[in-house]
């Protein structure tokens, strides 16, 4: 791999983590002493993706803004890696008029037409719309593709299986991605899923399935390269499952008493692990690693300042945008 590519993957992961650390801080800052999920600068459920950045960075490095991606209720890493505007993203999370949905959507319902990014709060239901985006690209004979992302828990939903079958049948330019973080909220994969690898399920629909172990950003990048090329060249869909890690709760405020894998969790953080690789290989110096974090935090700070200084939607305008 080229140094430039590896640097890019690292920068993307750091930017995503910096963003979520800032969100994490503000989310909890004004929910004390009595913790009220609906209170504060950022109200509502908050699903953060810390630990899963390798999936986003590795996949999105192969995409342009004309490629579509549908993400999940845990969407920030994918949005950032796909290149959505950080300020507009922050503004939507803070419920502001300048956000992607003018405060009507929230962090699980982000739509950015300029990068064809969207997400859905309903498990597995982001897969079918990606088929339609892919259908449109194929119909218009473009080489753009759609990427549909979901978690390992979603692979037991009908939408997952219907989508794999239909995409395979119609040879749609789709890359299906399963983020296997071991946990469907509190239920581990081995208690929800009859087989170990969802890549095998892809094979049963006649399409390639590949599983990337170890949360390896370079492993994801390589698998995605094959899958994206296949889709772009008319070869049809394929599926990549990535064994990743959910470093934080299912949602913020999740006590995670059900988890039995907490002892060495921080050792699985993919960002310091990748930094070590890059330093060892002479791609980056420790000083450069620090500088990347400083730059990321500056960009995040600017985005969050923009969000906080943006106007709050007027209650009297709650009924706007129901119809076009």
């Amino acid at each position: 791999m080229e140094d430039k590519t590896r640097l890019g993957l690292y920068e993307t992961m750091v930017l995503s983590r910096s963003f979520e650390e800032a969100i994490l801080h503000d989310y909890h800052a004004d929910k004390a002493p009595a913790w009220d999920i609906g209170a504060g600068l950022i109200p509502g459920e908050m699903h953060l993706s810390a630990g899963q950045e390798p999936v986003a960075a590795g996949i999105c490095a192969h995409l342009g803004v004309n490629d579509a991606i549908t993400a999940t209720h845990r969407p920030h890493h994918l949005a950032i890696a796909h290149g959505v505007d950080l300020k507009t993203l922050a503004a939507e999370i803070y419920g502001r008029e300048t956000g992607f949905g003018r405060g009507r959507g929230g962090h699980m319902h982000l739509f950015d037409p300029s990068t064809h990014f969207s997400c859905s709060g309903i498990i597995a239901e982001g897969y079918p719309p990606a088929l339609g985006q892919a259908f449109s690209f194929k119909y218009h004979k473009s080489t753009n593709i759609a990427v549909a992302v979901t978690g390992e828990g979603a692979a037991n939903q009908g939408a997952f299986h219907e989508s794999l079958n239909l995409a395979a049948l119609w040879r749609l330019p789709v890359v299906f991605v399963v983020e296997d973080n071991d946990w469907a909220i509190s239920v581990p994969k081995n208690r929800s899923t009859a087989i170990a690898s969802n890549a095998d399920r892809a094979n049963s629909y006649g399409i390639p399935g590949e599983r990337v172990e170890n949360n390896s950003v370079e492993g994801v990048w390589q698998a995605a390269g094959r899958a994206v090329e296949r889709a772009r060249s008319g070869g049809g869909p394929s599926l990549i499952e990535v064994r990743t890690v959910r470093l934080w709760g299912h949602f913020e405020g999740d006590a995670q008493a059900y988890r039995n894998d907490m002892d060495h969790l921080s050792e699985r953080d993919p960002i310091p692990l990748y930094a070590e690789d890059l330093i060892r290989d002479g791609v980056l110096s420790p000083e450069q690693i620090d500088a990347i974090s400083v730059d990321a935090r500056a960009a995040v700070e600017e985005a969050i300042e923009f969000a906080k200084s943006s106007s709050i939607p007027l209650g009297s305008e709650a009924s706007r945008y129901v119809f076009a």
């Binding site: 897969y127 079918p128 719309p129």
Partner: peptide
């Protein structure tokens, strides 16, 4: 058959396909 498409019995998949195609500017 490129514009009149029989689907599998997979309403979730093809309803979502309609939405995704519409989002991209088509009129399913």
């Amino acid at each position: 058959p490129s514009r009149i498409l029989d689907t599998p019995i997979s309403e979730t998949a093809f309803m979502g396909l309609a939405t995704g195609a519409a989002v991209e500017g088509m009129r399913p």
